[in-house]
């Protein structure tokens, strides 16, 4: 049998939560213990010691929703930014390539926290947009740069022959990219994008410094008025943990599905 041209080199894993595949028995078990353990602990705290904890659980739900919105909005917009910049990075047009490379280099060289402050307050000077939208744009602008590198690597991992075959059939470069290269690249980039999603979920806590009322900010508000710092941050940590574990499971299920499709 000839070599299967569809096998691509996998892209190195980022700093997101480890994504539990069934094949990794240890991690899979750990996932179950952590996920169900956190939920049980939350239930125990809320109903076992309601005087200290129930009020916290009542205070934070809208913060969870905001964290969720920032994360999902951020990752979707980051994919758009990343795709545009990633295509720019492999463009033969020197101007486009230069602009995309500059974006990636600048963003990757500035800490996320600084970028958040900068984009949030810089945007505020010129346009009137709601704070949560500014926060999403700021997160996406940063993650887009990392996403660009994932897309670039993903596109470049598709064998050259694929583009040549598409072009030989009379497709334009754009048609070949859309019909042939990107659908294959998406499959390659899905695991690293999943990792970015989890990393973004955790980094979304940084938007609390922008006075966006996310999960962490709600926790800080509660703690700063009740002075129950330990109890509050225990709950905040548990809720973040449940969210990241839930989403990493969801992503691993999506990946398994995609692989079954073949």
């Amino acid at each position: 049998m000839s070599e299967n041209p569809t096998t691509h080199t996998p892209i190195a894993v980022g700093d997101g939560a480890a994504i539990p595949h069934k094949s990794d028995a240890g991690l899979f078990t750990a996932w179950r213990i952590a996920f169900f353990g956190s939920i049980l602990l939350c239930l125990f705290l809320a109903f076992g010691r309601p005087d200290q904890y129930l009020a916290i659980f009542k205070f934070i739900p809208d913060g969870i929703l905001v964290t969720f919105k920032v994360t999902v909005g951020g990752i979707l917009l980051a994919i758009v930014f990343g795709l545009i910049a990633g295509l720019g990075r492999i463009s033969s047009n020197r101007l486009i390539n230069g602009a995309a490379s500059l974006y990636v280099e600048i963003i990757r060289g500035v800490p996320l926290l600084v970028q958040l402050f900068y984009i949030y307050y810089a945007l505020g000077r010129f346009v009137k947009i709601p704070d949560i939208v500014s926060a999403i744009i700021a997160m996406a602008f940063c993650y887009g740069a990392y996403m660009a590198e994932i897309f670039r690597a993903g596109i470049q991992s598709i064998p050259k022959g694929q583009m040549e075959a598409a072009l030989s059939l009379g497709m334009s470069r754009r048609q070949a990219m859309r019909q042939v290269i990107l659908p294959q690249a998406f499959k390659v980039v899905l695991p690293p994008i999943g990792n970015e999603f989890i990393a973004l979920l955790k980094d979304s806590s940084l938007v609390s410094i922008l006075a966006v009322a996310d999960l962490l900010r709600r926790g800080r508000e509660y703690a700063s008025e009740s002075f129950n710092y330990f109890e509050t941050y225990t709950v905040i940590a548990l809720v973040y943990l449940i969210m990241t574990l839930f989403f990493s499971k969801l992503i691993s299920m999506m990946e398994e599905r995609l692989n079954e499709g073949r």
Binding site: P5, P159, G161, Q162, E164, A165, A166, L167, S168, L169, G170, V180, Q184
Partner: peptide, 14 residues
């Protein structure tokens, strides 16, 4: 290219 087909050593099916 529309008028000239090409067949590759490595097939290059999608």
């Amino acid at each position: 290219r529309e008028e000239i087909g090409m067949v590759f050593q490595s097939f290059n099916l999608f």
